[in-house]
Write a protein that binds this DNA or RNA. Structure first.
Lengths: 161, 161
DNA sequence: AGAATACCCGACTAAAATAATCAAGTAAAT
DNA sequence: ATTTACTTGATTATTTTAGTCGGGTATTCT
């Protein structure tokens, strides 16, 4: 899991789609103008988003892109994973001499953390983000992410597995 | 907030320090060997970590680095922030013609998400990570880090939802 | 049918960040 | 005094990001 500017562009573009629900498909040139992202770069990103079925494309005049699923079935982690290459976080996966030394303990701890972040972003949908903004405008307080619960949940999940 | 390989190196190095509590300072060359990070790159990272008082340095023979605070007072977000430059996530912060249109709504939603991630990582300390690993080992009796399981878990996470 | 729109795709280039290297210091311990 | 190891700055190489280019294909509209 990586949180890069590339992923930010992707999430931004997906949010742009989510904010234009049923006026037909949204063209990349529209997104390009509104969000200030180059058209060709958007094409690269949407190629990957489409590969993961996060968006559907409609060709021809009046065509463009639409979300591939309802906003509550699209999670931030999925968007990030679609556009970012998965990396080997340990750097020692294939080493024969990797025998639970200090090195691998740190790697393991890092993987733990990485899983926590991934699990966290796997629970935030586009719909969550948009509703949170609504709530924020009304009450100025948010109920969505339960951070402490997340921490404990991960522990129990791993123990079970 | 960015979650990059650079930040991963920093967290890894800090974990390495945390795992060597009171045998005196830990030299960067030790960390370099154990974690497979080049010495000079570690120097760059620790320059920033020191600037933020996350580590203390001891010069001379037998010198090295120690954590600047107890493990429960050092949070992952602080480490990330120390080594990563803060970026302007909106790209329109200073524009006078930015009047809360669709563009800025997406930017605002992104900032919201970014705050959530930051808040999440601001609650995970080095101590949390280490204790969680202890609990995991006790329950599963795992003595060797199971990298393949980690990867598998990540994949199923990606597929889920 | 033909023109216009907009997705699709691969290769290429430019810019930026990451990672590593080199060189020349300073502080402290033996 | 010598060695160790931090400290700093400059430089370079590599990778990633971002953008560009030039072609395509599917679709709609006239």
């Amino acid at each position: 899991m990586r949180l890069t500017t590339k992923g930010r562009y992707a999430v931004t573009a997906m949010l742009d789609l989510a904010l234009h629900p049923e006026q037909g498909p949204v063209s990349l040139s529209d997104i390009s103008q509104r969000q200030g992202i180059s058209l060709s770069y958007l094409e690269q990103l949407f190629s990957k988003l489409r590969r993961d079925a996060l968006v559907k494309s409609v060709r021809g005049p009046g065509g463009g892109y639409q979300l591939g699923r309802p906003i509550d079935d699209i999670y931030v982690a999925q968007i990030m994973d679609a556009v970012n290459e998965v990396i080997d976080a340990t750097g020692c996966k294939n080493k024969a001499d990797c025998k639970n030394g200090v090195t691998c303990l740190t790697h393991y701890l890092w993987c733990d953390l990485s899983d926590q972040i991934h699990g966290f972003l796997s629970k935030i949908s586009l719909g969550d983000l948009m509703r949170q903004n609504d709530a924020h405008n009304k009450v100025n307080k948010v109920t969505e992410p339960k951070v402490d619960d997340q921490l404990f949940m991960l522990q129990t999940n791993e123990m079970a597995g």
